[in-house]
Amino acid sequence: MGRGKIKIQRIDNLTSRQVTFSKRSRGLLKKAKELAVLCDAEVGLVIFSSTGRLHEYASSSMEKVTERYRKGKDEHHRQLLNPTSEVELWRGEAARLRKQLQILQQSHRQLSGQELNGLNVENLQNLEDQLETSLKHVRKNKEQILIDELKELHWKKSLLVHENKDLHKNINLLHQQRAELQKTIYGSRSSDEVNRNTNASCSLSTDNNLNAPQLSQQPQNNDIPEEAMNLRL
């Protein structure tokens, strides 16, 4: 469960106010120390509690921090009171940047093979060394890009090979399943034909038996000759 949102206002309860001050002041001092160490900043922090107790922190010493603060504040006031000095400051900065831009443009033209008439042998040699160094860096970057592209192509090739193998496995499995299905279908058809032939043979033999002449089970009364009858008498 998350912490509730605290309303920023004076805490009326004295005990709660003191506890909150103790926690928040420790956290603020910790953040000030971290800011001074991580960012190499000069930090000065002064806290007075409601009871008048002093809590302070300084990255170097409080006297140096306060002295620097006074100087910075006075300089800021002087700049505000004398706007012409600020204008002159920005003019000097603009001139410095223009000069730096001109130097960079001239160096770029010389690297491109232009405006080489005023250069001596030493300057030309330095320019050639710069070009060779730049060319080495360009070739190195080009080779690295080609190596990365080749690695990517090899990876794609291996991926395609694995996919091709999987497709061949699936195709072989489908062929096997198809062959088994055909075997099952044709096997059932052969059994049905055998059964039909057997039934046809049985019905044919039955029909032949029904059409054959039937023999009488009782003996026929043959005519006895009269002479035999006379002998019996």
Rank of each mutant, 00 (worst) to 15 (best):
residue 44 G to N: 03
residue 191 S to Y: 05
residue 90 W to K: 00
residue 108 H to Y: 13
residue 81 L to T: 00
residue 98 R to I: 01
residue 190 S to Y: 08
residue 52 G to I: 03
residue 39 C to D: 09
residue 54 L to K: 09
residue 58 A to C: 08
residue 66 T to F: 06
residue 225 P to Q: 01
residue 16 S to A: 08
residue 193 E to P: 09
residue 95 A to S: 09
residue 30 K to L: 12
residue 82 N to E: 00
residue 21 F to I: 15
residue 77 H to S: 03
residue 103 I to T: 06
residue 53 R to M: 04
residue 203 S to Q: 13
residue 218 Q to D: 12
residue 107 S to Q: 09
residue 135 L to W: 03
residue 149 E to T: 14
residue 197 N to D: 04
residue 220 Q to Y: 08
residue 29 L to A: 06
residue 192 D to Q: 15
residue 233 L to S: 08
residue 68 R to S: 08
residue 130 Q to K: 04
residue 211 N to T: 11
residue 157 K to E: 14
residue 168 H to G: 07
residue 9 Q to E: 08
residue 72 G to A: 15
residue 86 E to A: 00
residue 217 Q to C: 10
residue 64 K to R: 05
residue 212 A to T: 13
residue 109 R to H: 04
residue 21 F to S: 13
residue 219 P to E: 08
residue 181 L to W: 09
residue 155 W to K: 14
residue 5 K to I: 10
residue 162 H to R: 06
residue 232 R to E: 13
residue 140 K to L: 07
residue 149 E to D: 14
residue 198 T to N: 00
residue 172 N to I: 14
residue 117 N to L: 06
residue 208 N to G: 10
residue 154 H to C: 04
residue 146 L to D: 05
residue 76 H to Y: 04
residue 53 R to S: 03
residue 146 L to S: 02
residue 76 H to E: 01
residue 50 S to L: 07
residue 156 K to P: 00
residue 91 R to T: 12
residue 47 I to L: 15
residue 170 N to V: 10
residue 92 G to D: 06
residue 121 V to H: 11
residue 95 A to M: 05
residue 181 L to D: 07
residue 145 I to C: 00
residue 118 G to S: 15
residue 209 N to H: 01
residue 1 M to V: 06
residue 218 Q to E: 13
residue 68 R to P: 02
residue 121 V to D: 14
residue 109 R to W: 08
residue 116 L to Q: 06
residue 82 N to P: 00
